[in-house]
Amino acid sequence: MYKTGILNSEISKVLSDLGHTDKIVIADCGLPIPKGVKKIDLALTFGVPSFETVYKTILEHMAVQKIVIANEMKEANNSLYQLIKGTNIDTESVSHEEFKHLTSSTVAVIRTGEATPFANVILESDVLF
């Protein structure tokens, strides 16, 4: 049995298979998920699990070189924006419409129970060397 790390087998598999520049999404419970993109649904109820819990856990186990957010997060969800800016990872912001378009080229979307506006990020995989 897996002793440490992420216990969710689907997330563990996706992270293990990522190559340099592959992308995943951590999403709130309202973000549309494009057809053909793997959905890993963790949502139980509104707020559970929270975006922050999932985001911090993924960052512990994934080498990330870039984060993409929606411009709208800065005003509509400033506390989350401040959390993301505090990671010291290169961050790009695009319109929410562009963000939704970009999700179609990701490996997977991890859907949380988060129910606050624009609580979505695209994480671009880095290399460890």
Rank of each mutant, 00 (worst) to 15 (best):
V94S: 10
E52Y: 06
K74W: 13
N78V: 05
F51G: 07
L59M: 15
K85L: 10
L59V: 11
I69T: 12
K74R: 12
Y81R: 05
T91Q: 09
Q82D: 10
I58K: 03
T87R: 02
A70E: 08
T91A: 07
T53S: 09
T91S: 10
T53Y: 12
Y55W: 05
L83W: 02
S79G: 13
S95Q: 04
S95K: 02
N77H: 13
S95P: 04
I67H: 02
E72V: 02
A70D: 05
T87N: 04
A70V: 00
S93E: 15
I67V: 07
V54D: 08
S95W: 01
A63C: 08
M62A: 02
G86C: 02
E72G: 02
K66W: 15
E52C: 04
A63K: 03
G86L: 03
E92F: 15
K66E: 10
T53I: 15
I69E: 11
E60M: 12
N88K: 15
E97Q: 15
E97S: 15
V68E: 14
S95G: 09
V68F: 08
K74N: 11
V54S: 07
E75H: 12
M62L: 09
I84K: 00
N88D: 15
N88W: 07
E92V: 14
E97Y: 14
S93T: 12
M73P: 07
S95V: 04
I89A: 11
T91V: 07
H61S: 09
